[in-house]
Design a protein around this nucleic acid. Structure first.
Length: 761
DNA sequence: AATCGGAAGGTTTTT
DNA sequence: CCTTCCGATT
């Protein structure tokens, strides 16, 4: 043990301390923002271990991988690596996925079942809708997917769904009575593919524990001590699983804050907090109300905002910290200007107060808003990192390669099969695939069986096509054989090459192709790291190299935010949802406009509006020192710009805490200078050429616009003119100019300050 | 069977 | 605006 127990307990305040050492029965901790919630959880784990509890008996559940990793790190800090490693800490989904790998056979799943992410399951739903010849405008994929997901997370099976009169009449009145059949067929197809979607991980865990008392009992014995983070975000399925696991020992500790419940849209149910009382009548309640994170101004502003919500648990968050600055505001003419003003403000603060980039974050409601901010930061040469957005793992080329891996591990994975059977092109076209699909349905077998032996199933194809299918199967089988002896990295490289995937992308010879190859290389590098890290850890042991199977077990549950290379000094950009649990000295919340934040979909019902307000509350309480709220008067939406109204949330901040823009007198001549000149930039609206995304924003800033070292003879790329060669460089500092010869337009004289040149070589 | 172009549709939020 | 899907063309 690294520290003496009493030493680390001294670092807690009274309430935190009591919550940590309370050792008798169920515990609920209601923790205001910034009050040391994670601290209580980690210290509690450390405390249990110090009392001699076996780490193997502790289960700690979080919602994001990031939160899980942070918790693990902090526990390791407290008590050292050895014991902490054996505590089960992870997201609900990853922990349950692990359990299902072991116990899934009881439900008829092999241990190598595939996890479908939401893209995969939407593809499958799309296929089913078109197979059923339904109007795919009426039966929109996302609507159906949502409906099914809601059902599953409430543990409503396909039969329950079809037999529930309320559900049926709801579907009938929305003109979609056949959702029940789509749901049934969807589950059947997942089964046939030995696949589970995200909701199945919860649904099946519940089925396992309710249908197999022996299995339940053994996990109850294993997980004697259960801790749950962000309890307010649990959905019905998660709630019941925890309840079952805890039923024997009732040594359960849940931590949450009803004011930060922001996942209602995916079935999270605040009443789980309220029900805790009735589930565990002898529970102890602790309230953490002292905020250690933020200034008085921020705490008071957030408190005031949340009072506009009717439904909430009473608590008084307060702080001893200094008052700090007033909340700042930015009012911009357009979303582009908003980006510019935010970037300028970051730049100024940085200079005036000697701050670093990583002290800043820009938060927004929707991922799409990142673009104008990105552009502005890039122009100001401020490095940034985007969390979330289009996930690295959802890029086409990555999905394709991963699909090869998936098929090697599980040949029943039909989504993977369909994705790659003709990628790169192998002459297996639509007609053939259609025949295979039909035969699979007809015989009730998996598509892999059909293509392995088309003649057995009477599939009518010519010998040329037969040979092509045979070659495909032979290739996959050879990968399967190789996979038995190679580690994850070796087999991955082998597949990337032998499948022809890398070659076909290289042959494209386009900038997109190059960036796709880079992405694949990035994935392979990550796999190399994964493989080698495992070797390091197992020092002494006989070659415990990580296998492809092990890699693939994790990958479906990973998101971009999990690539933690953020030791760099960068401004963070993310959605408010993604920011939960994090803190930053200086926070910008952008796009505070009606219909955007609060979102247009949520302003019609009280509960949804209140969730938006909690979201705003979460955003405000991320900040330690300053908050700046910004909105734009016009914003691009679907190609043309629309006028917007300031968000109601702006008005809900107490006047004494915010620095509102002074109302401008009507004086046409004076008003002109900044605003009109900005509007005259109209042409800029059209030039929104998005740079190809680099992986998680790495090097998005530094080398793309750092033209300080530009030299004669270099190859460069310009957003509009394409590639060119530097003919001459002259001038210094801000007036540095270059003459560049572009293939498209010939010689151009460019002021480097403005032209965003990218150095190629 | 592959490729290209036009049309249509889509923005909440995440595991 | 951007991505994805479908059909027509080669």
């Amino acid at each position: 043990m690294k520290n003496n127990v009493n030493d680390f307990l001294k670092q807690l305040n009274k309430e935190q301390h009591d919550a940590v050492v309370h050792n008798d029965g169920p515990v609920m901790v209601i923790a205001g923002a910034g009050s040391g919630k994670t601290r209580v959880l980690t210290y509690r784990i450390a405390y249990l271990l110090s009392k001699g509890v076996d780490p193997f008996n502790i289960l700690a559940l979080t919602f994001t991988n990031k939160a899980a990793r942070e918790m693990k790190d902090r526990v390791i800090n407290l008590i050292g690596d050895g014991e902490a490693r054996n505590v089960w800490m992870g997201t609900f989904h990853s922990v349950f996925a692990k359990i299902l790998r072991i116990e899934g056979h009881l439900l008829g799943y092999p241990s190598n079942y595939t996890i479908y992410d939401s893209t995969d399951s939407k593809r499958l739903i799309r296929n089913i809708i078109s197979d059923m010849n339904l109007d795919n405008k009426l039966y929109s994929r996302s609507f159906v997917a949502n409906r099914i997901s809601m059902a599953k997370s409430s543990l409503i099976s396909t039969t329950d769904y079809a037999n529930d009169p309320d559900i049926q009449s709801a579907d009938e009145s929305s003109q979609k009575p056949l959702i029940k059949d789509i749901y049934t067929s969807y589950q059947a197809r997942l089964r046939r593919a030995d696949a589970m979607d995200f909701d199945d991980l919860l649904f099946n865990t519940y089925m396992l524990f309710s249908g197999f008392p022996k299995a339940l009992y053994s996990y109850q014995q294993k997980f004697k001590y259960i801790l749950v983070d962000e309890y307010q975000d649990t959905n019905h399925a998660q709630y019941l699983i925890i309840k079952k696991l805890a039923a024997n020992n009732e040594f359960i500790c849940v931590v949450g804050d009803d004011a930060q419940s922001i996942y209602g849209f995916r079935g999270a149910n605040i009443s789980n907090i309220l029900n805790f009382k009735s589930d565990y009548p002898d529970f102890s309640l602790f309230k953490l109300e002292q905020n250690y994170r933020s200034t008085k101004t921020i705490v008071n502003a957030a408190n005031k905002v949340i009072t506009y919500n009717k439904d909430q648990i009473k608590k008084t968050v307060w702080t001893d910290n200094h008052s700090g600055d007033l909340i700042g505001t930015i009012k911009a003419k357009s979303d582009n200007e908003e980006g510019r003003l935010v970037a300028e403000s970051i730049f100024e603060k940085k200079m005036n107060k000697q701050l670093t980039n990583n002290m800043f974050t820009v938060l927004y409601r929707t991922n799409a808003q990142s673009r104008s901010i990105e552009e502005a930061l890039r122009q100001k040469n401020i490095p940034y990192r985007i969390y979330g957005g289009l996930s690295f793992y959802s890029r086409k080329e990555i999905k394709d390669l991963l699909s090869y891996f998936r098929l090697v591990i599980n040949q029943n994975d039909e989504d993977a099969l369909l994705r790659i059977i003709n990628v790169p092109p192998k002459g297996i076209g639509k007609t053939t695939i259609e025949k295979v699909v039909v035969a699979a349905d007809l015989h009730g077998v998996n598509m892999w069986e059909i293509i392995s032996n088309p003649l057995n199933f009477g599939v009518d194809i010519n010998s040329g096509t037969q040979a092509k299918l045979r070659n495909f199967c032979i290739m996959i089988r050879s990968f399967i054989v190789e996979n038995k002896t190679k580690d994850a990295f070796e087999i991955a490289v082998h597949i990337a090459n032998s499948s022809g995937l890398l070659k076909s992308l290289r042959d494209e010879d386009t900038p997109e192709g190059v960036s796709r190859v880079e992405n694949i290389e990035e994935l392979l590098n990550g796999m190399k790291e994964f493989t080698e890290k495992a070797i390091e850890k197992s020092d002494g042991d006989l070659s415990i190299k990580k296998t492809l199977n092990e890699f693939m077990e994790d990958v479906a549950l990973l998101t971009d935010a999990d690539n933690d290379d953020d030791d760099k000094d960068k401004v963070s950009l993310m959605t408010i949802h993604a920011s939960k649990g994090l803190e930053f000295p200086h926070v910008f919340i952008v796009g505070l406009e009606e219909n955007l934040f609060p979102s247009i979909q949520s302003i019609s019902t009280r509960s949804e509006l209140e969730e938006e307000r909690r979201l705003f509350y979460v955003a405000l309480t991320r900040a330690m020192e300053t908050v700046t709220l910004s909105h734009a008067e016009t914003r691009y939406r679907w190609g043309n710009f629309t006028f917007t109204e300031p968000s109601r949330f702006l008005d809900e901040i107490d006047d004494s805490l915010i620095d509102r823009p002074k109302p401008v007198m009507f004086n046409t001549s004076q008003k002109s200078s900044p605003s009109i000149s900005n509007l005259s930039n109209h042409g800029n609206f059209k030039k929104r050429n998005l740079k190809p995304l680099t992986i998680s924003g790495v090097n998005s800033s530094a080398d793309s616009s750092n033209t300080n070292n530009l030299q004669e003879g270099m190859s460069v790329e310009h957003a509009n003119f394409g590639r060119g060669k530097v003919v001459a460089v002259e001038g210094n500092g801000p007036n540095k100019k270059a003459t560049v010869f572009f293939d498209s337009v010939g010689n151009k004289n460019l002021l480097l300050r403005f032209a965003k040149l990218k150095i190629i070589s």
